[in-house]
Write a protein that binds this DNA or RNA. Sequence first.
RNA 1: GCCGCGGUGGCGGAAUUGGUAGACGCGCUGGACUUAAAAUCCAGUUCUAGCGAUAGAGUGAGGGUUCGAUUCCCUCCCGCGGCACCA
Length: 802
Amino acid sequence: MYDHQNLEKKWQAEWQKTKLYKVGDGQEKPKYYILDMFPYPSGEGLHVGHPKGYIATDIFARLKMMQGYNVLHPMGFDAFGLPAENYAIKNKIHPRVATEVNMANYRRQLELLGLTYDWERQVNTTDPEYYKWTQWTFLKMFEQGLAFESYEPINWCPSCKTGLANEDLEDGKCERCGSQVEQKPMRQWVLRITNYADRLLADLEKLPDWEEPIKDMQRHWIGRSEGAEIDFSLKNTDLSIKVFTTRVDTIFGCTYVVIAPENKLVAELKDQIKNWSEVEAYIEQVKNKSNLERTDLNKDKTGVELVGVEAVNPFNGEAVKVFIADYVLNSYGTGAVMAVPAHDERDWEFAQKYNLIIKPVIMPKNSEIIDKSVAFTADGILVDSGNFSDLDSALARTRMIEWLEREKKGNRKVNYKLQDWVFSRQRYWGEPIPIIHCAKCGTVAVPYDQLPLTLPEVESYEPSGTGESPLATIADWVNTTCPKCGGPAQRETNTMPQWAGSSWYYLRYIDPKNNSALVDPVKEKYWSPVDFYVGGAEHATRHLIYARFWHKFLYDIKVVSSEEPFAKLKAVGLIMGEDGRKMSKRWGNVINPDEVVEKYGADSLRLYEMFMGPFSEAGAWSTNGLVGVRKFLERIYNIALSPEADAPVVVNLLHKTIKKVAEDILEFKFNTAVSAMMILVNAISDAGGKLNEANYARFLQILAPFAPHLSEELWAKIGQNYSIFQSPWPAYDPALIKDETITLVVQINGKVRANLSVPADIAESEVLTLAQADETIKKWLEGKEVIKKIFVKNKLLNIVIK
RNA sequence: GCCGCGGUGGCGGAAUUGGUAGACGCGCUGGACUUAAAAUCCAGUUCUAGCGAUAGAGUGAGGGUUCGAUUCCCUCCCGCGGCACCA
């Protein structure tokens, strides 16, 4: 009887005892580094959806092991972050304690599934020996001016009481708690990720093995736009408005200029503005709008003219009106735009509402009819544009930028939607930022030999809400001496965001216990880059951008030898609840892997999750489906050994299956690999449910990556005294795969009318003879004229008749 | 609105350098075994007509290319994911 409980326990203990999954840094074998996105260990534990990706990489890793690779397939925990801290506040438990309990539980759950992890390489982002190197990298960035203090308004979550990066928002709300985010000016640490924008974009081309949709999402997130910055001088002042545009070619159609209400320029122009009270009221009204209200595309555009202010178009010297309006964003470009209502939808809408002049200066290239009720936004031929008239848009842009640069009235400019990374959080449970503030010396780095700068114990983790972290209340930690001048100084009390530790963890698995370097260069060279990275698509524009940035910085300072951290990337599809909804406590549809493993076994769970459907697609859990897979394993358990040679049909299918299973695993097509093994087992049953020992062993070897426990058990039962995973992947015999007879289809006018069982590689003339002898075909050909015959070798014969 | 992915039986899905649509699994129907049930085994299962051989229809909709289209092209519809006043 297939007793999965004892059998799985037994082999897990055995693997642990023999250290089967211990990974050496030996160079005698080719290496393969396959990585899962490490989890945040929450108090709830794993549900069956979490390990889907881990099971897939585990199967892949086991195949690679059997194919002779030195495989690194590690696991660790991303354990800093808000949930642990919020839990700590509620239950008065130190986040470290809660985190340790959760990590132990996660590890227990993962071990139940029989995964190949070498736990001696586990990393934990909250371990001071780990975050020492997170802090170290931060200081290196600080030295190079890539980490700096900024006072620009940032996203502020009033409920989590901390500043957030753009990447932490969803629909203008806090990704963690769903609160409406406010704009709040405050001191913060920022990483200049925009310095790397061009490389982050361009190097996507060097990643052919990333899924294209993920690269697309990154391209849009980086959002590169080429254009120009242009100075519009202001009449009667020595001030000017700098605008950014990608359509200089439309500038002769500029009939007003708009600046964002928050733009500093507005205050500077106060003396010129004749309707100041109205302007002030508008600014106040905008401030009170939530981000969501402001960005609602359906709302009417609003704005106020700055009466008394006039801007001069540098191309034609024309003076135009100036507005403030909240459809212009202060955070992008220069926070000001030239409005060309004839050729921009947003300007068109605004101009319609406020009755402003709409002046067309671009005509369609091929006399198509223009729809006069909307803006014409395509490229075309310039008209009424002075010396630039009659030029084509693209050429005009080049010429006009040249003119601007010559006249010193503007310049070529590239802008990005990507914004610098707001890197400080006013919270407790994160890496302390290793900076000291000295009244005399300014911001000073904590000396490298004082790293790690550890998190101090604290009475209350409650965020103060004043924009200060809870660390600010610990006087004897905050007050220190300046490393530069020795005078009294204060420590930085902000901590790093959750994304910091996960930006480089894959490097630490290579050398997890090194306390003199982030990673040993020799080991780094051996293992890097990660050959294959598997995880959720929700990280496309967060973790995966941050990690690529962090890695490129480490490359620049020669800590790593590759420009990109992850050579190949695949997204895992979600497992939904049985009701088709996302698994969550809220819907009561969570399936706990512990229970599934107990009742059906880890091998059934593994096999079922792979059989559910295509790996990258979402699908609903089905306990019925799981039971089907369990039955399949039982049938395997009951296959008997036979002293006789196996039937040719079975041998042929076995070799085909060996070939297909390896190919499918490498392409992450697990569902069809499982299906192929089912077809084989059906054939074995039809042939009497017996296999010759040599073939039985081969079958166990291809099953082993999917169902390691059962395979190991049956492998031992046939007297093997070493692990099945130390055996080489079986070779298939190409001669045995070849079919001797095949089914060939005869079509009449493209419709199948008969099947012929014929020898492989049969010639057309012979097929024709056979077809003409077939009763059904005869009937169809009767009294008809044959126009054409199409013959596809070993596939079909199509007879076209009239 | 823009970008990306997808739409195939009752359900999950398989099959694309264009060549038997529905593999495999679930479910369902009938049968064997059993006092009975469960489990297991056997047979069937896209729809329509027919006892059957067989015929017709059929991969979101409509057109096109082709001897032949789930696969390629055009125009739509629907679902999911991402971005969203980025000038």
